[in-house]
Amino acid sequence: MNGIRRTAVLAAAAVAATGLMTATPASASHHGPHPVTPWIEVVRAHDPTWVKIWWDTGEKICDAEVTVRADHVGIVYPENTGSYTSFRDEAYLRPARPDYTAFKVDADYDRNTMVPVEATLSYNTCGDKAVEKARIYWLRLPVLRNPDH
């Protein structure tokens, strides 16, 4: 097992032991869109890294936009969207076809920590009578101290 992977496994085990590993209330309801897991990939502090949030849904959604916010974490969205991120192929999500949103994070921390991330998903219910909706999901970004800083 390589060093980064071993560190990530140890970080996840430490978080699980502290009782922080809980599902978000939104993930309990599988009808609408929801993150597949409350975790974002492990990153090193001060090392800009592209990360993904995997999503699933029980009903089709359209025109999806995701914005994220976290204290002391710089966020950069893909060039083609600029102020938000959307799904890999299109701006919609269909049942039984998980997809992800991607963005770059730069965590400004000098220690190992677990950063709460607020992800806001704005979308509509598709079709002629589409209803606009927005939901906030709370996720966790594991940050490992970067020994090079």
Rank of each mutant, 00 (worst) to 15 (best):
V51F: 06
I40G: 09
I53G: 04
K104A: 05
P147C: 04
K129M: 04
L144S: 06
T18V: 03
C126K: 13
T85N: 02
K52D: 11
E79S: 12
E79D: 12
W50H: 07
C126I: 02
K104P: 03
T7D: 13
R5T: 10
V36T: 08
N2Q: 05
N112H: 14
A70D: 10
W54A: 12
G82N: 01
A28Q: 08
D106A: 11
Y77G: 10
T37P: 03
T37E: 12
K60A: 15
A28S: 04
L10Y: 00
A26D: 11
T81F: 13
V117R: 07
T67F: 07
N2L: 01
A45M: 09
M114I: 08
V43R: 11
D56Q: 07
V66K: 11
T18N: 01
L141N: 04
A11M: 14
M114G: 08
R97D: 13
W55T: 14
K104L: 14
E132I: 08
A13D: 07
A134Y: 09
I40S: 09
P25N: 07
A8W: 03
W55Y: 15
D56P: 08
A12Y: 00
R69F: 13
D63I: 02
E59Q: 08
P33R: 03
R44P: 02
L139M: 08
L10V: 00
P25R: 12
A70C: 06
D148A: 15
A26W: 00
I136K: 15
S27M: 15
A13L: 13
V42R: 06
A45G: 04
T24P: 06
D99C: 01
V42D: 03
T49W: 06
V43H: 13
C62A: 05
L139W: 05
H34E: 03
E90L: 04
D47F: 05
A130D: 11
D71I: 02
A64V: 14
P78Q: 12
V76A: 13
S122P: 04
L141C: 03
P147S: 06
F103N: 02
D99H: 01
P38G: 12
A26M: 02
T37S: 15
D128K: 06
P35V: 07
P35C: 12
I61Q: 14
L121H: 00
T18D: 09
D89W: 12
Y123L: 13
T120N: 00
G19Q: 07
V117E: 08
C62K: 05
V9W: 02
G58S: 12
D99W: 01
E59N: 05
V15Q: 04
D106H: 09
P48W: 09
A45H: 02
P142H: 09
A130S: 13
A64T: 14
Y100W: 15
H149W: 05
L141V: 02
P116F: 12
I61V: 14
T18W: 09
R69M: 03
I75P: 01
F87N: 10
I136G: 11
Y137G: 02
R6T: 04
N112C: 01
A91R: 06
K133G: 00
T57F: 11
L144I: 11
L93W: 13
A45F: 04
S29W: 06
R135C: 07
M21S: 15
D56F: 02
T22G: 05
D110N: 15
Y123H: 14
V9H: 05
Y92V: 00
A70K: 01
P48K: 08
T101H: 10
A70S: 10
T57M: 11
Y84T: 03
V68H: 10
A70L: 09
G19S: 13
